[in-house]
């Protein structure tokens, strides 16, 4: 798994690629918490290049969403069919705002 963090005006974009599972989900969690601790509360996690995510990955994004809710948001972009199925099983497709592409997720904050 790779995590790349960049800024687009007031929004922080976290692009993830590869597989998110119990061996590496904490790296994603650390990247999210690092941004939140710096006061960056408008987050977009782009899952377009993630081909697999287990409950370990969900735990990290849910935990980050709990931290930012009320102050900002964590929005998801372009989850694959597989990742979306996992989000749906956990009922997270109604909790997260999910966008079909990165630019729509970023512009949703303006």
């Amino acid at each position: 798994m790779n995590v790349n963090v960049s800024k687009d005006n007031k929004t922080t974009l976290i692009e993830v690629s590869g597989r998110i599972d119990s061996t590496n989900a904490n790296q994603l969690g650390e990247a999210l918490m690092s941004e939140i601790n710096q006061g960056n509360m408008q987050l977009v996690v782009d899952l377009g290049s993630v081909d697999y995510m287990s409950s370990a990955g969900l735990r990290e994004i849910v935990s980050a969403l709990k931290k930012v809710r009320g102050k900002g948001d964590l929005r998801l972009a372009q989850p694959s069919e597989r990742v979306l199925e996992v989000l749906e099983m956990a009922g997270l497709d109604t909790i997260f705002q999910i966008f079909p592409d990165q630019s729509l997720a970023i512009s949703s904050y303006s």
Binding site: V62, K66, A90, G91
Partner: peptide
């Protein structure tokens, strides 16, 4: 765990076996 639970009350654990039973 209950997938219809609100964010704040949502359980952290139990999702792995829940997914296993679902799929």
């Amino acid at each position: 765990p209950d997938p219809t639970t609100d964010l704040e009350e949502r359980s952290d654990g139990g999702w792995g076996i829940y997914f296993t039973k679902k799929v």
